[in-house]
Simulated scan of single mutants.
Amino acid sequence: DKSSKKVRILHIVQSAGGVDRYLRSLLKYLDSDDYENYLLASDDFDLEKYVGICDKTIQIKMFRNISLKDIPSLVKIRAEIIKTDPDIIYAHSSKAGALARLANIGIYKTCIYNPHGWSFNMRCNPYKRKIYVLIERLLAPLATKIVCISNMEKDSAKSNKVCQESQLEVIKNGIDLKHIPDKNCNEIMRRKLGFEKEQIIIGMVGRLSYQKGPDVFINSCKLVANEIPNCRFLIVGDGEDRQSIIQLAKKNGIADQLIITGWVENPLDYISTFDIACLFSRWEGFGLVLPEYMAMQKPIVATNVDAIPEIVQNKKNGLLVPVDNPIASAEAIIKLLKNERWRSVIVETARKEVLKEYDINRVAHEHQLLFEKVIKMP
């Protein structure tokens, strides 16, 4: 039975990782007096984490790649839409976006779609890219609104003629600033990881996959280690390229200086140990870890690609380097390490910016305005 005043939203989501963290922050800050949030998630999700921030959770099998295995998922999603009877369906990421919109055909529920980064902006062969663009164009009319997480994402949708411009809404990502650890965290974590006081920590947070450029990170680290021997290197994350990254570190002679944590519950605690924070993505719809670095007051070196320059302005609140360029990346890291005054100015600028621009409360508020708008639409 539907409460007369609450708006019921069915969130449909397939890929975990960054989307999972985004969704948990958003749900926590959506006003529970006005909204009833249901979550329909793939089995990549740990539903325990949604206790207390969701009114109901449902788990089904969903697959990342497109195949005939999607048919049972589609049937289940359709059944859940009918059973749940939401006011709004909110589909997160490309695969869930496709399944949710197809499942909603003939049910005519208001549907919002957030790709969390367009699949066609990935580095892939031109044929695959054209297919991704075509799929998005075909499915676009089935969404009432499409949420872009950066201005770059909106421009990209327009230049690829994905949908009508009136469908696009930009709601930039944000982070939960209440969860920034205190300064003591740094020393506790350094001890736990076995770092010595005088060692300099160069770190990155991200999936060990081609997109995030962990190979560029390792190649940069080798060059930094040649110049500044008391550096240590920390990768917070895991992924399909883990073994090849370990092999590359061995080949570069820095395997003994490198720690890979695997997936962790509290990435911010690990960021607290960084002296320099890196993100060498080859493509990036937003880069949620960047505001986290900024909030943790870590000097940033990141690639000048896609949405990253919207967050990191070169030489103002961080340094930008070309994609796939370990030499430029290492030079930027060394430059920051050698200039303490400049480093502290950059960090302070970034800290002020994150408080102003990237608070999850703003993201929740902008979503509430969007929900009100779509409910009033004919």
Rank of each mutant, 00 (worst) to 15 (best):
I245C: 06
A98T: 09
P72N: 10
V236L: 08
I259K: 15
I12D: 01
L47D: 04
M189P: 08
E48A: 00
A16I: 05
T273M: 09
D43I: 03
N325P: 03
A16T: 13
A255I: 15
I89E: 12
Q164E: 15
L290K: 03
N304S: 09
S150D: 02
K335C: 05
Y113V: 05
R123N: 10
I259Y: 11
L138N: 03
H92S: 09
M62A: 04
I260S: 03
L102T: 09
R129C: 01
E372G: 14
Y50H: 08
I71Y: 13
N266E: 11
I300K: 00
E169V: 13
E227I: 12
L337K: 07
I131F: 13
I171V: 13
K335H: 12
K183D: 13
L40D: 00
L39D: 00
P86S: 04
N226E: 15
I246Q: 14
Q297I: 12
I82E: 12
I201A: 01
R64A: 05
S329N: 01
S32A: 13
K172E: 15
E353S: 04
I9R: 07
V19M: 09
C148Y: 03
N184T: 15
L30H: 02
E372M: 09
K161C: 14
E292Q: 10
Y108T: 09
V133N: 00
S329D: 02
A91G: 13
W263F: 14
D33N: 12
Y22M: 06
L279C: 01
G287S: 04
E169R: 08
L134H: 06
R123T: 03
S119F: 05
K376A: 07
V323A: 06
M294K: 02
I235V: 15
R341C: 11
G237P: 08
Y35L: 03
S32H: 14
E165Y: 05
I276A: 11
E353C: 01
I276S: 08
N160A: 15
E353H: 02
L68P: 08
A225F: 06
P326D: 07
S159C: 14
R24D: 03
G18D: 00
N266A: 11
D43G: 04
L30I: 11
S281H: 05
F233M: 07
D182K: 14
V289Y: 01
D44P: 00
N184Q: 14
R242P: 09
I88F: 12
I260R: 03
G174K: 05
E357T: 05
D85A: 04
K2S: 13
V13P: 02
V289I: 11
I188D: 13
K172G: 11
L139V: 05
I135A: 11
H92I: 04
R21T: 13
L134I: 02
E48F: 00
E372I: 07
K154P: 08
I188E: 13
I60R: 06
L138S: 06
K251I: 15
K6V: 14
V7Y: 06
C221A: 12
K109M: 11
S73T: 12
S272K: 06
D176A: 08
I188M: 13
